[in-house]
Each structure stands twice: as C-alpha cells, then as structure tokens.
Design a protein around this nucleic acid. Sequence first.
DNA 1: ACAATAGTGTCTGTGAGACAGTATCGA
DNA 2: TCGATACTGTCTCACAGACACTATTGT
Lengths: 217, 217
Amino acid sequence: MKGYDSSQFEKLSVAVDLLTFTVEDNRLKVLMIKRDETPFAGKIALPGVFVGVNETLDAAAVRGIKEETGLKNIYYEQLYTFGDVKRDPRMRIISVAYMALVPVGQLDYVAGERTSDAMLVDVEDLLASRRSVAFDHKKIIEYGRQRLANKVEYTDIAFHLVGEEFTLPELQKVYEILLGRELYKANFRKKVADMIEETDYVTTGQAHRPSRLYRRK
Amino acid sequence: MKGYDSSQFEKLSVAVDLLTFTVEDNRLKVLMIKRDETPFAGKIALPGVFVGVNETLDAAAVRGIKEETGLKNIYYEQLYTFGDVKRDPRMRIISVAYMALVPVGQLDYVAGERTSDAMLVDVEDLLASRRSVAFDHKKIIEYGRQRLANKVEYTDIAFHLVGEEFTLPELQKVYEILLGRELYKANFRKKVADMIEETDYVTTGQAHRPSRLYRRK
DNA sequence: ACAATAGTGTCTGTGAGACAGTATCGA
DNA sequence: TCGATACTGTCTCACAGACACTATTGT
C-alpha cells in the first residue's frame, strides 16, 4: 500500500473540540460545559462538534463557536489534532482542536446563566489543580495555553482578547496574564507603539488621570 | 447537539500525509511519489497512509515513514490538518500532515532507483514553478516549508538535518538553506556555541584547513 | 608559495530591561 | 491638596550584525 492507492480502509469519527479563551476578572478563562451523560458524567469538558461529511474543519469550528457562544466573527485558529486510540472510551474519535479568542466582556452572559451548562473556568487554577477533566481535554487546554503564551511574544494575538477600542493599561494587563509576569509600562508601550493608533477618546469617571483609547492599526 | 452528546453522525476517512524533508546537493528536497492511478495520474504527490482504527496518528506517521524511507528513529512532528471537502475528488478524506526530517545523505538511495516511484524534489524549484502537484499537496509543502523556516530561528530543528557528527560549515549551510540567506561565520558560531560540543575528530583529505567535527550537546 | 576554506577578535548599533520622573483626573 | 493611575525620558547592558584578521591543510 502506497500513497492514496488503497481501496480498503475503515472510516473514523472526526470531531472539532473548541478551546474558547477569554479574559474575565483579570484571569484567563476557558469555556467549558458540564457533562450530564456517560462517559465522564458530572465532569467538565470542552465543547465539541462532529465534522459533517460536507463540512470543512474550519466550517465545523465556526459552527461550534456560534453554537456555544452565540458570537460570530471571532478569531480562531487550528491548534493540533489529537488521535489517541482510547481518548474516548466509547469509540475511536479523532479530535481536531481549535482555539478561539473572545474579547473581554463579550462572554459575561455565560456566568449569568443565559446558557444552561456552559461556564468559564480559570485556566491556571484548573491546570494547577488535580481536578479531573473529561477525555484528554486537560492536555488540550495545556497545549492551547502554551500556544497562546508563545504567540503573544511574537504576534499580535493578544489584540483578539480586547475590544475594538482599548486602553494601553488594559492591553498590557492581557499581555501580563498570558505571559504570567509583569511588564514595565514604558517598555510595553514602545513594543506595541507601531501596532496601534490613537483615537480621540479617553476614559472618564475614574479618580485619576484618564487613559487614552487606542485601536489596532 | 452539544459536546459529544450526539448519537448520530457520519464517519470520515482519515489519512496521514508525509512531508519528508532532507538536504541534498545543498538544496532542500522533499520526498514525493509519482502517481500512476487516477486521480492525478502522472502527477507527483506526497506519500500517505490511511489511519487504522486502532492506530494513533503518530503511529500511522511512523509506519508511513518506515514504509517510504526504510528508516526508523527519524525526527517528526505533526504539522497541520487539512480538511477541505473536495481535496480528494473521489471521497472525503481528512489529512493530518506530518513533517519528517532526514539527515543529509541518508536518502541518497532514492535517486539510485532502489525504490520504484519515490524521488527527491527540489522544494524551492517546485514552489516557484507552476508544476502541477496532486491534491492540495503543494499547499501542504508550502506550509511545511514555512514552518521549517520559522522553527530554524528559535529551535534546534536544523540539527535533525545533519548527521550525528557534523562540521560547523556543514551545519551553517543547512541554516542558510532553510533561512534562504547567507550568515556570517563568526556570528553563526556564537549562536550555536552552547548547543554543540567538540569531538576529537576533524575532516581530512581536502586541500585546505580541516574542519572539526561536533555533535549535539 | 599559493589557493582555498576553517576559525577568531572586536567594533558598532539596536533594542529590551530597569527606573525615575512628570501629567491629569476625582474627591 | 492628595491619592491614584496614566504616561514619558533616559541610562545600561546584552546581543546580533558586520568585517578584518589569523590558522591549517593539499598541491
């Protein structure tokens, strides 16, 4: 057997698992659901959808993001494909993991019970704890967390976690959360200077100097 | 439908496509096969294998590498999963692309006709040309080429393209091929200094100063 | 001696890191 | 005026880039 010149083989189930990150209360959170069916009933899991025969992987990811968050036009990228044989005890499922980034604030309704079983889970807490997670989803979360930490260093990926307009202290905070360390204001501003442009607006109502709003250049 | 709590869905075919890179004649080459069956008969394609129901993705990749090159213990990593609906005109196939790196010299037999249909194709030439490639394999090659160029900057991935023992001019050449530009000797040596260790051997038989052999630290 | 390639010493400019200072709001 | 946070100027140091120089082989 060589190349595709094979006529006999078995088919497998393919799913897209969604790693939906957002920032809430100055913490990195991931969207998860509580399972009420076996296997792993009662455990938390990443939401996922099966890939349709006439659906691309990206399309399945977009559909899943829409179903879980109600949001469209969300940044997403394919992460990695997990294919261990026994990752689902019922049957063989290949899982293509996607990472989606939702700007701070846009998923607040989740905590507000607008959906039945969805919740935002603190990523660092979860990874540090021994809390059991369904399937191999803890590994997937770890992988995505790592990718995010890497990409914040050399891409503009952090911008997808703030809104259209943002203050620099706000953006800096996101960088700090993803990097896991504090940054110097002056240096941070020099770093992002050529990626942003000023708006004419500033924040108001705080008992200190207002901060200017910027947007992605 | 939410999460895995679905009981009805269709199954798909999953394949692993292999991007086997090596360096030959100071050029980056990729291992390809000439198809003699439809579709794309006569075109060149990446070798691939279907994933067995009781086989992990990594295991399928290892099996494919063994089948195509006869080599074991080759560096490989998962690249990306391609899932366009019509990427194979016959049926729906999800392809998990893997990249493998073979040290210079270890695939010389390919050109020597020891295998019937395998060949080493010059990557830059292929990507620059309009030569038709089967399926979406040109896109896969481009993706892998890019990943390799990126990773050579911040990892030790280039070491997998030279043998156990190597000279620094040889290693530098590999870096230059992957980066697509020339490097300064002195700077290059400073960069890799802490990743290598001297051996007691030097090259001989050349009409100039011999170069010392090093190995990965 | 010479051609050819291996290998080293050192100057310079750029940019990240660190810190101290100034600016502007509400109370 | 004061507390709090926004924002800026500048020094330092490590490191990549550039280039000139020395070293060692076969012919």
